[in-house]
Amino acid sequence: MEMLIVVAIIAILIAIAIPTFASSLNKARIATDEANIRAGYASVMADVLTNEGENSGETGQTAKEYTLNTDGSVTAGGTAYACKGNNTDATVKVGGADVGVWQKGDGVKYSYDYATGKVTISVGDGK
């Protein structure tokens, strides 16, 4: 009888611990995604500042599109980064831009507007 009680208590503790562990794991994945999105934003700004005269509105371009790649670089093409976690918090901001929510597997795209000098970040436009 004592053995059954011990097994029942252990089962209850495991039932409580597993959802907590899964939630912590998703929070870690979201933190990784946020860090990668911030690094991509920094890369976009570095590219814009480095190539300011080449890609500006002087050449008739109004905006430039970038995609976050799996290696952390941002380019017009490449192997797109896929988000690792499911973020339901719409208050995430990077460089003053709202990022919004994302799901596991969503891609990250950036658009730099030469007229306003702002970067728009969209997550979920492609996988």
Rank of each mutant, 00 (worst) to 15 (best):
A22H: 03
A15I: 02
A8W: 10
D89T: 09
G126R: 08
A39C: 02
G124Y: 15
A15L: 05
A46T: 12
A115P: 03
T91F: 10
A31F: 05
I18Q: 01
V44Y: 02
A8S: 13
T59I: 00
I5Q: 13
A22T: 04
S23C: 00
K84H: 10
V123C: 10
V123K: 11
N69P: 03
K127Q: 15
S43W: 08
R29Y: 12
D106M: 12
D125Y: 14
G105N: 13
I16L: 09
K104Q: 08
I121Y: 14
G126A: 12
L13G: 14
L25T: 09
I5W: 12
Y110V: 07
T50K: 03
A22R: 09
G85I: 09
V74D: 11
G77H: 05
A63V: 07
Y112H: 15
S23P: 00
T62D: 06
T32V: 06
I18V: 11
G53M: 01
T50S: 08
R38E: 07
Q103Y: 06
S73Q: 14
G95I: 06
K127D: 15
A63M: 05
E58R: 00
D98N: 14
I16W: 10
S56E: 00
Y41W: 10
V123A: 10
V92Y: 10
V74P: 08
V6C: 06
E52V: 01
G105E: 15
S122T: 15
N87V: 10
S24M: 08
L49Q: 15
D89E: 13
A46L: 13
N51D: 14
S111C: 09
M1W: 04
T120G: 01
D125H: 13
A22C: 02
T88F: 08
Y112D: 14
